[in-house]
Simulated scan of single mutants.
Amino acid sequence: MHKAVFLDRDGVINEVKTKRVKFVNQPEQFYFLDGVAESIKKLNDHGYEVFVVTNQGGVGLKYMSERTLEEIHDYMVSALEEKGAMITEVKACTHRPDEGCDCRKPEAGMIKDLVKKYDIDIEQSYMIGDREPDIKAGLSAGLKSLMVVGRSTLAYKNFRNLKEAVEWILDN
């Protein structure tokens, strides 16, 4: 079995709702947050598989196409790889927020699929998100769920950013 860290995308890996970008609907709107590549590389170096699980209802709402979302994720993965950081797989729920699917966070469908596909040991694994639906999805999948940026009473611990969360994981 493998240990893993599941990351939300917007607000954990990249900017969203900032002065530069409101939502990421094009690759050129994707800006990495400070320390993300280094943090993911540290996880990789310590034997963690790293996955991205992201709600991308903009596809279902027709703000972007599936192909554009793939281009955004291809850019993200290749830019991280250039810095030695590896993402094992990116999984996105592209349904509209009102569709009631089991993959859209706070449901745990995306995480559960990846756990099964990659033989992940949930006891040694974590979910890191910046909103309550991320935390709820991680908890539903049986993961310790860590909140970055905001605060959550449901989260196992709260941190200011991904770098702090990763440092805590590696120290514990």
Rank of each mutant, 00 (worst) to 15 (best):
C93A: 14
L170T: 00
N14R: 09
Y75E: 12
I128Y: 00
E107H: 15
V148T: 04
P27C: 12
N44D: 09
A108P: 11
Q124S: 14
Y48E: 04
V149D: 08
T153H: 13
F159E: 00
G57W: 11
E66L: 13
E49M: 09
V52E: 03
I135G: 01
K163D: 07
I120N: 04
D98E: 15
L143Q: 00
T153D: 15
Y75H: 12
K105T: 05
P106G: 10
G84Q: 10
M86N: 13
V77H: 08
F51P: 00
K3G: 00
H2M: 10
Y118V: 06
Y31A: 13
L143P: 02
V36W: 01
S152Y: 03
V24K: 10
P106S: 11
K117P: 08
I13W: 09
V24S: 08
S145E: 00
E49W: 02
D34I: 13
G109F: 07
A165I: 04
L80R: 03
T18C: 10
I111S: 02
L7C: 08
L69C: 10
F159Y: 10
L154G: 04
K116N: 14
F30P: 04
G84I: 05
W168I: 01
V77G: 07
G47I: 04
Y48G: 02
K91I: 15
K157A: 03
T18L: 10
D98V: 11
